[in-house]
Write a protein that binds this DNA or RNA. Structure first.
Lengths: 156, 156
DNA sequence: GAATAACAAGACCATTTTATCTTTTTATAA
DNA sequence: TTATAAAAAGATAAAATGGTCTTGTTATTC
């Protein structure tokens, strides 16, 4: 490795750690959705996320109306809208910022396009499309439902 | 975004900036391969890579025998072996470190597997496989060849 | 209305990644 | 054999990301 240490987890990263935490929290909210809000601290504990850090991320999601927060005693957070109307890419974009205008070239060239493709272009393009589709087609309701199914299966 | 600024390029990252530079340099070496070595500084200039930084990366590649360096006047670097025997994933692993033993879960859960899949597992797994295959099937000779073809096409 | 319990917010700190500066080592050419 | 040109190496700095601390602000309960 070039620099002294690294975390060995760089390869195939779809989004930042912050976005990952955001997704986990949102799925949790979708799973245990009730009228009364869920405390950030309890979500943080469930997923082993540093509480203060998650609180920061939640603030961003509140600004983007993906989460509604209620302050004060008995406060907490809830989904900003119906789980089936929230898609993964929205959460990622909210936290990591919007995707770049121009598609990122697999080997980092800035003059890479369909007309002047980099040598990896034709293999990478469909894969990138698959990833985009995955993130745009998955809504929170489905995701949470699968988590619930899984838990039921494991408790049998 | 959560932290003050970011570069908007996090999404869909296959490897680090260092590995990207390494790949660019290796393709260049493969393209212009002759008996006499190529100077790191000239590669750095071609791809707009900070010279000293590329030099560091090259040191790593030398240690991994992917590059052979010759010091002193008229020195420079050459591929460590035949271009057709060097695959993309080797370069990436050399710079970013080896991939994790356990497949990284798309939403970052550590109890995600075929038997206990996270809700994204079945969609993410084949995509990850595609990426792995892309990086393991592409050798430098093919890549460089395509770059040369492209250049000839554009100069017509 | 005071105590309490929750999120909000900003400053700050730590780690990792990227980049630079300076010196050393090595080989070549004159 | 000396000047020069290249990579090697180590220290340092800058930027990005990840994480913590402290103090507000708001709502609820008693």
């Amino acid at each position: 490795m070039v620099s002294s240490g690294n975390n060995y987890n760089i390869q195939f990263m779809l989004y930042s750690k912050s976005a990952e935490y955001a997704i986990q929290a949102m799925i949790h909210l979708s799973e245990f959705q009730t009228d009364k809000p869920t405390m950030i601290s309890s979500i943080a504990k469930s997923y082993d996320i540093p509480y203060q850090f998650l609180a920061k991320i939640v603030q961003t999601l509140v600004k983007r109306r993906l989460i509604i927060a209620k302050r004060g005693r008995n406060g907490g957070i809830n989904l900003g809208r119906d789980a089936k109307d929230i898609y993964l890419h929205e959460i990622i974009d909210a936290v990591d910022g919007p995707p770049p205008e121009k598609d990122i070239c697999a080997i980092g060239l800035d003059y890479c396009s369909d007309d002047a493709p980099c040598p990896l272009h034709h293999k990478w393009k469909p894969i990138r499309k698959n990833i985009r589709e995955m993130l745009s087609s998955e809504n929170l309701e489905e995701l949470a439902h699968r988590v619930i199914e899984k838990r039921e299966l494991m408790n049998k």
